[in-house]
Write a protein that binds this DNA or RNA. Structure first.
Lengths: 233, 233
DNA sequence: GATGATAATATGTCTATACATATTATTTCT
DNA sequence: AGAAATAATATGTATAGACATATTATCATC
């Protein structure tokens, strides 16, 4: 039997998904064990294992040693969002990206920010205010703090050329992050920066990036009206 | 050599992540091939393969046959968001969930909705307006269309008890979805439903759920002020 | 030099087998 | 009966070896 003819873990995966979807295997139910399925599909147990692991990763199966694999009742579907770099996002729309650093200062943050950065009182950090533009129009206004205790090189960097975001991606990549999304009415200051009317609803994101439990940067972004975040499950 | 002593694909995975993080393997660079790594770690190639596949899944490596594995320069970070059921979300905050169906009608949708549901002109669909509440206070207002051509049972269902969302999860589980998130100023109608002032910034989500390329439901949700969507990368 | 055939190579997948480990079921002992 | 020890079981992981497949590099040909 040529190996790709009948089996292949992906075909088994689709078959499993199909049986779950059509409710041949009902929510809450235990499915046959790997050995039985391997026999049915005429393949090795490892192949079934690979397929079932993939389905479990997708959040549709609960797999337990000795207990077996069970179809989950209310699958907590997990959505993938990729967090693009603003420049790329804007360029992907066919618009020209540019940015302007409106403020840059090494200073002692307020108590709240100290906590968010996880640094001691009396320590300084780099504060940056940046306006991101698409075709010259305000796209997003950014307020960022960079932990210069952890990343001292940041203090001597000029962010006029390369944006702080891209600089960080290049100089402190592969980090963890917490994100939050919300809506708010533009304050007078935000309205002025984004050249919109005060009170207009704007989409906000905040991001806290860490590496080895050290906070690297904390950013707030306010997007110009019309912004939409898309994702698929 | 006992198998769990030295190796294990997870240990190899951490080591690989560590080498990427510390830039021993720099962005853009080609890493040693599986056979070489297997030798270095003293394990089978399959074990290295498993580890590298996991790192690639996490979005840090680009793996190509013959070409080898390369550290990605700008890792497109992928965030996991789980889309909870509103009831669970509210209950998780320790608040009491309740909902009220304000409108329910089988009718011919407007052209725009027809398109979104992917159904023919002249066809009817079920329109539902629901208010979700936490501790009796408005939490989110929902406008939903259900494709009764694909899910005829929905037409005869009473959504006063079980919310449409939960009914759908139970009756048409394991679907695909597209989500969007944005901010807007509350219209007069929205403000009235959510008992807030007109113009207040509210967080919106829309969701289109499909199964086998058939649209099952299309939902818009407006959240009461203060709502925040969280996720981690 | 361009083109097309051919070889070389790294990853992708499968098999069979073995042992590990978590968890449940059963038996034994008190 | 209840607790503790033991067996049974399904998944988890590792191994060596084989073949598949995509892609690159090389070489022959015109």
């Amino acid at each position: 039997m040529r190996q790709t003819e009948v089996s292949s873990w992906q075909e088994i995966q689709s078959e499993v998904l199909e049986r779950i979807r059509t409710r041949k295997w009902k929510p809450g139910e235990l499915i046959p064990n790997e050995t039985e399925l391997a026999e049915e599909f005429g393949c090795a147990r490892a192949t079934v294992n690979r397929a079932l692991r993939a389905v479990a990763d997708a959040g549709l199966l609960d797999r337990r040693r000795k207990a077996g694999s069970r179809v989950l009742t209310l699958p907590e579907r997990k959505a993938f969002v990729s967090i693009p770099i603003l420049r790329k996002e804007i360029e992907a729309k066919g618009q020209a990206y540019s940015h302007e650093v409106l403020h840059s200062a090494l200073k002692q943050p307020a108590r709240e920010t100290l906590e968010r950065l996880g640094i001691a009182k009396g320590t300084k950090a780099l504060e940056l205010h940046t306006l991101h533009m698409a075709d010259g129009f305000p796209y997003a206004y950014e307020e960022r703090w960079i932990n210069t205790n952890y990343l001292p090189q940041a203090a001597n960097t000029d962010f006029d050329g390369l944006s702080a975001n891209e600089w960080l991606v290049a100089n402190a990549p592969y980090t963890e992050a917490e994100l939050s999304f919300s809506a708010s009415n533009a304050t007078a200051r935000q309205a002025e920066k984004l050249k919109i009317e005060k009170g207009t609803a704007i989409f906000n994101t905040t991001r806290r990036t860490t590496q080895d439990h050290h906070v690297i940067t904390f950013v707030k972004l306010w997007f110009a009206p019309g912004y939409e975040l898309l994702m698929t499950v």
